[in-house]
Design a protein around this nucleic acid. Structure first.
Length: 575
DNA sequence: GCCGTTTTCGGCCCGACTGTTTTCAGTCG
């Protein structure tokens, strides 16, 4: 039922972690790291592949293929069991402390007999760490603070939506400095991962010192973690770490590539540089022989000089984009510019909408949309849903507004998928809507088999044109429900139903990984804001980035089509 | 452990910062 690839990837991630802790050859560790990524990124179900096909995956060789097979056959990997037995579990806990890596963790454990976080705290209090080679009083103090911070609040990854506000505020502050020529955020935030661990800021400036000083002194900053000539790390009020790099404007593009990552992507393109007699770092792309800078001012220059197509940031995850960009086969992924409308949004006709229909329509028009579907909640949703009578009243309100803003208002509804897959109203009434999206709003904890069955049943309905927020997840707060994506994709193709990429930064549902599988399967997508306020209409960029992470092109996206083609899609399903 | 527009063996990305050291190891990204 579950997607086994993630399961397998988890096993290899654990092997990688344990290998690191057991002091294995770093290159071997890297090989496992890469294999973990390859397994996680595979779009075909591993359990359907034979040994040769497994080993054909980039980063997977004979040895890894054997271990995958072993896991699929027996549910275990002997090597992992051995590693678990050999590596004390406390080492994993210790390396979660910033500043403690494998070597230090191993040293503390072996020399002092520390077997828990509390044990480390005691050892620090007894000033025993300073007895160890390479450690001193300063390290003790740093670790004491780091442990306190871990205990104080969760310092883990935060939803992208929370981080982007801080990042944009910090960028704005830095942009005000007269020395600053360019400023942006980079890192996983620029790649639009759904959660981020820190904020990476990049500045091009003639004189770096005042820029670093400005960040250190910024009132959003609570603590300076590291301060050098090229790099500053601080802790912000929100508890999120921010790293600043300042470079010369001629290195800005190379620094942006480096600082945007991902790490795995960077490793791949640096390897490519080496093979071409070049070396790539954050200061530029250099000829190894002459030392001359070949590129560096823009990202496009850097990729161009590496003989590759430009790779949009959301694709930089080492999931095949480097090879594709080199071969010229990277898809032309969808952009904000391709969007013609938005197919999921609410007004205050339904209880949870925060703006009037007219305000929402004006907002959609201001974004240049040709059409906007007002999909207020339907009658089966307690509190917020509209009865048939209210829907008819709303129909009149829509008609009155229809020609006022130059955007075609599509009369829509967000239907509720019932326990058995049935949706609101009756078939005839549903046929009178322009566009309906159907979503699960109740019974979210049902087993995957049932969840999948009810969604597939809803897809059979002729007026259900799209399925909204398929997994129901709220990033960092609510786990996705267990659905069989392969079965859903199959039903989507069979019934001519689209799957929504919900652009709300709290949802991003489908995820980028699921988008990629949907695109591979040939399923049509929608990218919609699920806006409940005028401001929410700006979320489209998050949905676009998520679709890009799944390698979707404009051709895959229903609301990148002009209105007649969109209406054809709706009609085709109803026929 | 993986991999090959010089290779089926011998390589494997690159640099900043800190704390401990007198030239570098560990950590991080």
């Amino acid at each position: 039922m579950a997607w086994t690839n993630e399961d397998v990837a988890r096993q290899f991630a654990e092997i990688t972690t344990l290998l690191k802790l057991s002091g294995a050859d770093p290159f071997r560790v890297r090989a496992y790291e890469r294999a973990t990524g390859a397994v996680g990124a595979a779009t075909a179900d591993l359990s359907t592949l034979d040994d040769a096909a497994l080993a054909a995956l980039k980063g997977v060789g004979a040895s890894t293929a054997r271990k995958i097979r072993e896991y699929l056959d027996t549910g275990r990997i002997g090597m992992l069991d051995e590693l678990r037995a050999a590596v004390p579990p406390v080492l994993i806990e210790l390396t979660r402390i910033p500043g403690v890596g494998p070597k230090t963790a191993r040293l503390i454990h072996d020399a002092l007999g520390v077997d828990s976080l509390e044990g480390l705290r005691d050892a620090i209090a007894a000033e025993r760490l300073r007895e160890l080679p390479g450690l001193g009083a300063k390290t003790e103090a740093n670790l004491r603070e780091a442990i306190a911070r871990i205990g104080a609040k969760d310092t883990g990854r935060v939803p992208m939506a929370n981080a982007i506000a801080i990042a944009e505020e910090l960028c704005e502050r830095l942009a005000r400095l007269r020395q600053v020529r360019r400023v942006t955020y980079a890192g996983s935030l620029r790649r639009m991962r759904e959660t981020v661990g820190d904020v990476d800021l990049l500045v091009a400036a003639d004189d770096p010192a005042p820029v670093h000083a400005a960040l250190r002194d910024c009132d959003l900053v609570t603590r300076v973690v590291a301060a050098g000539e090229a790099k500053t790390s601080v802790l912000t009020r929100a508890g999120l770490q921010a790293d600043l790099r300042v470079v010369d404007v001629d290195a800005y593009g190379a620094a942006l590539v480096y600082f945007t990552g991902s790490k795995a992507h960077n490793v791949r393109i640096r390897e490519r540089a080496v093979r071409r007699g070049l070396t790539l770092n954050e200061y530029g792309l250099f000829d190894r022989a002459s030392g001359a800078r070949v590129a560096g001012r823009t990202e496009a220059d850097v990729y161009g000089a590496l003989g590759m197509a430009y790779v949009p940031p959301p694709l930089r995850e080492d999931t095949g984009e480097v090879e594709a960009a080199a071969a010229g086969t990277l898809p032309d992924v969808v952009t904000l510019h391709d969007v013609r409308g938005d197919l999921h949004g609410h007004s205050d006709w339904s209880g949870d909408g925060k703006a009037t229909l007219e305000q929402m329509v004006a907002g959609a028009a201001a974004r240049g949309h040709r059409y906007w579907a007002v999909t207020d909640h339907a009658e089966d949703l307690p509190l917020n849903g509209l009865s048939r009578e209210r829907m008819l009243e709303r129909r009149a309100a829509i008609a009155a507004l229809q020609n006022r803003y130059g955007v075609r208002i599509l009369e829509g509804a967000e239907l509720n998928i019932g326990a058995d897959g049935r949706v609101d109203y009756d078939t005839d009434f549903l046929a009178s809507f322009d566009f309906c999206v159907a979503s699960v709003h109740t019974l979210m904890h049902r087993p995957g088999v049932d969840q999948t069955a009810r969604i597939v049943a809803a897809m059979q309905h002729p007026s259900v044109t799209a399925i909204g927020h398929l997994t129901g997840r709220i990033i960092g707060r609510r786990e996705p429900y267990d659905v069989d994506l392969d079965a859903i994709l199959d039903a989507a193709l069979r019934t001519g139903t689209a799957l929504e990429v919900n652009a709300s930064p709290r949802r991003l549902d489908l995820s980028g990984e699921m988008v990629r599988r949907a695109v591979d399967a040939g399923v049509t997508l929608t990218i919609s804001c699920d806006a409940h306020s005028v401001g929410d209409l700006a979320s489209m960029r998050y949905g676009i980035a998520t679709a890009q992470r799944g390698w979707a092109t404009a051709a895959d996206v229903l609301n990148c089509r002009e209105l007649p083609a969109l209406l054809d899609f709706v009609a085709a399903k109803r026929a």
